[in-house]
Design a binder for these strands. Sequence first.
DNA 1: GTAGGGTTAG
Length: 606
Amino acid sequence: MFPKSFAVSRKISNFIKQASGLRRLASSLATITGSPCPPRFDVAVIADLIEKQHWSKLGFHVKDINPNELFRQLISSELNPDLCLRYYTWLVKNRDISVSLELTFKLLHSLANAKRYSKIRSFLDGFVRNGSDHQVHSIFHAISMCDNVCVNSIIADMLVLAYANNSRFELGFEAFKRSGYYGYKLSAMSCKPLMVALLKQNRSADVEYLYKEMIRRKIQPNVFTFNVVINALCKTGKMNKARDVMEDMKVYGYSPNVVSYNTLIDGYCKLGGNGKMYKADAVLKEMVENEVSPNLTTFNILIDGFWKDDNLPGSLKVFKEMLDQDVIPNVITYNSLINGLCNGGKINEAIGMRDKMVSAGVQPNLITYHSLINGFCKNGMMKEALDMFDSVKGQGTRPTTRMYNMLIDAYCKLGKIDDGFALKEEMEREGIVPDVGTYNCLIAGLCRNGNIEAAKKLFDQLTNKGLPDLVTFHILMEGYCSRGESRKAAMLLKEMSKMGLKPRHLTYNIMMKGYCKEGNLKAATNMRTQMEKERRLRMNVASYNVLLQGYSQKGKLEDANMLLNEMLEKGLVPNRITYEIVKEEMVDKGFVPDIEGHLFNVSTKS
DNA sequence: GTAGGGTTAG
């Protein structure tokens, strides 16, 4: 009865023996050759377990199989990529297994082939968000393992977007560049957030690069991207280039919109130099000619531009114009006007404007109060400043550190240092943390009052907190210098370098001025050498002015004359202060410098 | 979605 079945089982057991022998052989070969032996498993069974999410069963089933290896097989077996993704998630989340970049992107390639784009998008979002520490170049290498450029482009594009959406702009920028090297075509949709982020970080040159690359790679920009580029160029004063981009826009079939024009107008307003408002006005005319209506923002830009160009009547005229055109002013409009009025010393009119805004139903905000309190402070109206400060507190608005700093500075400038300190204590009681600025105002106040010992004490307190900044050092150095204690200032110069604060032009100018004041021209010149040789900072006009004053006051007029020639040879333009020094210390004393005529031209121009 | 306002100290 049994022989047949016995024979069968013998066959089976032989087969198993052979098979296990082969497997042993293969695995021992694998250890020798290093090539893995594909483990035997049934894809259908595993797929079924994944689909039913029977994870513990799956765990048991695959316990002897290398998870990465199994994953590789699953992807190669043309198993539904959704199931592969599910298995991947389980591996990473529940079994804490990291999957190689190559396999990860193999998965993404198969998802892309199955057009599971939203799954790739959310996958990459998580991949980037969880702080993947993979290098961008390794990722691109993994992407390039697939030959399909279209699929790779889609993945690269989504990667750039994921970086941008997760504020990993540096990596996003690198991914953008690498996409170019690999010839992957990105979409304008992914480039835009990257561009906006770069703009927000004031990296205008990078925005410009991105734009040029988009054009080169034939990624069609849209109105928004064009406007971002225009803004980046305007922010760096490259107005002609900004205009060129506006022309490019037309070439691509887009008309500049109100944002494009506003950006350009604002660019001109914020540009230095003469006639900027004339240019801003010309753009305004141009936009109207092109049938783009100015909006609230346009008016706000102009109002702010005019008073900052010392043309407060211009601002008020624009304000009237906007009311005539039934454009409703907002809090920005009023804040700008109030700031302009305060700046022009018209405090009462500023208060009037505040009343006007309130009756127009526009609620003043923190910026309004900042402007008004600053206006009071700058015009010696301490009582009014404090009253407004109290009313802010009374409204339940928490005053800011800077608001306190404005008041503390105002007290100090009135010589009421004690009141300044009282305010500092008040802010500490209120739990508002004094910052370097608070200390700097007080230290400067003490120095001005000649109490440098107290200033140094406060400085030491600040040092214990690890807080002093370049300004703190400058204040104290100047304090010492003005008392004829340049040596102590020089000690501070060493100390600041130790703290990792890099001296600037101003730092050396303060030192040179201190030495000159003491008549120690040799030390002043040494300081110059230190600045030029050690810091590679070239003499600027202010530095020359300091030395010029030092030399001429000591009667070394020939040396002063040489300094003047030297600065001119370097292409530096003497300023009003240069002229005053030359006139008072040289010309009035009968010495005519070589470049007197040139200086005269400068002084009449400015 | 892209444009506009304020803030001390040297």
